[in-house]
Design a protein around this nucleic acid. Structure first.
Lengths: 194, 194
DNA sequence: ACAAATATAAACCAATTGGTATATTTTGAC
DNA sequence: GTCAAAATATACCAATTGGTTTATATTTGT
């Protein structure tokens, strides 16, 4: 085996970081909390991520973006059309919010807002992750017959509604806001894909 | 005069806090930064806000919410209909983002996401402020002839799109995202108010 | 099996965090 | 003008922050 334990350590660090970034964001996430939640000593953290907090967060955010994109792909394979896919995606987050007492909203949002003008590397990681998400959704919309430019704009619009809905739901501690947004955006999508 | 300097001190503290909450959020805002930006000694801060950081942030957030609601009212008085009002509101934030190199997005969003599961008092302040905003917009939509329930839902949908657009614009450091969302939501509003 | 590369552990650091204590100054009503 | 209340200023605190160092242990290819 080639450094199995090492790979596991890295995975544990990223997993703990992802959870903390999602629930509390970048600034409130202490590295002491990361090492505690992952049962990894601090020395190992700096061995795997010499760039410290910024590198750890950047790598985690990029992996998170990849996971989000993947889950859209999986979801769309099990749905009859893009409208159903988006509906399911909203429902997944509604469940997450309720299951975790509103700790688990969008894995990127809080960090993206905080780091936009704080650290270049994390900001770029967030941007890349959102772009990945946007492109996957846009490609699904194109498959529904929308022209390229329309699809790209509809993708942005849908993600904006999604993020805004998540924000309001978390701010109010009430998933009602997310259901309202879900119903309206799916209605809109239904009308534009003939 | 009755304690003019005291009132000014309080105003300075709230103004500095508002700026920091808007650009960096709650966790990254240090009280040492607040007292520096406001030229107020730390002792005065705890005199005016015995509850410390939480109280200072809560009061600031509530005042910010009031200001946002007021600006919608002013804007709608100078617009021919709700569609124009919303368009102008988006444009204002587009300008703000560009003018401040993406520091000044939504004055509530970052703090709302961070504090949703961190502090009860700040979370409630954010919720109250968003609700104030939502109700003002809903009442404007009702004046355009929409039935109560439809207006309330359209208000939520509009604010979600707005917040999501701001989030994406900040995450990407690109106001393009906000213009796309603006165009689509105003188009939508145009169709529902006959 | 063994040396070289890699990873872990734990003690340690300066700087900053939110928050206090207390002495001094300023204020306004009488 | 006096005096009590209110506000300000400064020095201070323990706790935590991100980050470093160094010694030890573990894996690895050969």
């Amino acid at each position: 085996m080639t450094y199995n334990k090492s790979i596991q350590t890295r995975k544990n660090l990223i997993k703990a970081t992802a959870g903390l970034l999602r629930s509390k964001g970048y600034s409130a996430m202490g590295l002491s909390e990361v090492v505690k939640n992952s049962s990894v000593p601090k020395g190992s953290l700096y061995h795997h991520f010499p760039g410290g907090k910024e590198e750890l967060a950047s790598v985690t955010i990029l992996e998170t973006g990849e996971n989000m994109a993947q889950s859209v792909m999986v979801l769309s394979k099990n749905s009859k059309d893009i409208v159903e896919t988006v509906g399911h995606y909203f429902n997944h987050y509604i469940e997450q919010l309720e299951k975790t007492e509103f700790q688990n909203g969008c894995p990127l949002a809080t960090t993206a807002l905080e780091t936009a003008t704080l650290t270049d590397t994390v900001q770029k990681a967030c941007s890349t992750s959102f772009l990945r998400f946007e492109d996957i959704l846009a490609s699904q919309l194109k498959e529904s017959g929308l022209p390229d430019e329309i699809a790209q704009k509809a993708s942005i619009y849908t993600i904006a509604a999604f993020e805004g809905g998540l924000l309001l739901a978390k701010a109010h501690n009430d998933t009602h806001y997310l259901t309202v947004v879900r119903d309206q955006i799916t209605q809109h999508l239904k009308t534009i894909i003939q």
